[in-house]
């Protein structure tokens, strides 16, 4: 496609793709996945991509000849994937491998073992808590990488130009002021209701971060950094992982297995409950602060580049 050289259009199309795939997930009754897709695929991903575009420019570098090797690889890969799709069992088939393995056990035993209404959270936070720990560490690592690359060197003096710009924009300023508290609270609501409805630490972290990013976009980076200083963010990114990990260690101390929360209280179900709330909190803190940190880092990088050119 010719238009694909306009990276900006590509980002917007990926936003539409996020919306579309979330609709599919809704139709497939996968509320949790749709929730994640809504927050990440349609929300934070295009947002971060846009900030990247501000620093790399909007148009792809002109390239004369078509590259045949990547094209060939892509075609083969796509063909293989389509072949794999054809091999998959029909939607909802009873004998599909995904239904025969451990899913049965999760569905039958999780109400008694974990005792929370949202089974997806039971699986993610408890049965497969170790995988989730890995995911949180990935986000932590990404944040560390961004900080090392973009926030190295001494801090620059913040500019005032954006603030002036937004002070003129009365409508956005007033409406933004009204919405920001609600967005932040909605993030926390999703955080604490992950056990009951769709949601959990990942989505909550993203929503909370989006609230702060909205503030940064409307009132300027320097104001946002005054509210949540970079130093605090760096600590928080690590703190989330620390909470998660130490819940696991606490289990070892009281004589259980790593990340098996049953021993945290006299009653195993209560123990699971406490464990899940704590690790979800850890996930939420790390995700939220990592997203805000990455946004700040990119925006600052753009700024300092502009200053250099002026």
């Amino acid at each position: 496609m010719v238009r694909a050289r306009d990276l900006f259009a590509t980002v917007m199309l990926s936003g539409i793709y996020g919306l579309l795939s979330a609709s599919f997930f809704i139709l497939m009754d996968a509320a949790d996945v749709a929730f994640t897709e809504a927050a990440v695929g349609a929300g934070i991903f295009p947002l971060l991509m846009l900030t990247v575009l501000t620093s790399v420019g909007r148009y792809e570098a002109e390239r004369r000849r078509v590259r045949y090797l990547p094209l060939f690889v892509m075609v083969v890969l796509a063909g293989a994937l389509f072949a794999a799709v054809l091999q998959m069992p029909p939607f909802g088939a009873v004998d599909a491998p995904s239904h025969g393995h451990v899913a049965q056990r999760y569905i039958q035993d999780s109400p008694a073992e974990i005792g929370i209404p949202n089974m997806v959270t039971s699986v993610l936070a408890s049965y497969r808590g170790f995988d989730t720990l890995g995911e949180v560490v990935v986000i932590f690592t990404a944040a560390v990488g961004v900080v090392v690359i973009l926030l190295g060197g001494r801090p620059k003096t913040p500019q005032q130009s954006t603030q002036a710009l937004m002070a003129e924009h009365k409508v956005l300023r007033v409406v933004g002021k009204m919405l920001i508290p609600l967005i932040l609270l909605f993030g926390l609501y999703v955080q604490f209701h992950g056990e009951y409805g769709p949601g959990g630490g990942f989505q909550a972290g993203v929503i909370f971060a989006v609230g702060i990013i909205l503030y940064a976009m409307l009132f300027g980076l320097s104001n946002a950094q005054r509210v949540v200083p970079l130093g605090v963010l760096r600590w928080l990114v690590a703190l989330g992982v620390l909470i998660y990990g130490s819940v696991g260690l606490a289990n070892l101390v009281v004589g259980g297995e790593y990340l098996n929360y049953s021993m945290l209280a006299s009653d195993p179900v209560t123990g699971q409950h406490i464990g899940i709330i704590l690790i979800e909190l850890g996930v939420g803190i790390t995700v939220a602060s990592a997203m805000v940190l990455i946004f700040f880092a990119f925006t600052r990088a753009t700024r300092s580049r502009d200053e250099l050119e002026e």
């Binding site: 917007m12 509320a31 349609a42 295009p46 947002l47 909605f186 769709p198 990013i213 976009m217």
Partner: peptide, 17 residues
């Protein structure tokens, strides 16, 4: 809840763009 999130994300995307 998902619908509410979308309403939110949609608004913020426009502002971001």
């Amino acid at each position: 809840d998902v619908a509410l999130i979308y309403a939110l994300i949609n608004f913020i995307s426009v502002i971001a763009v």
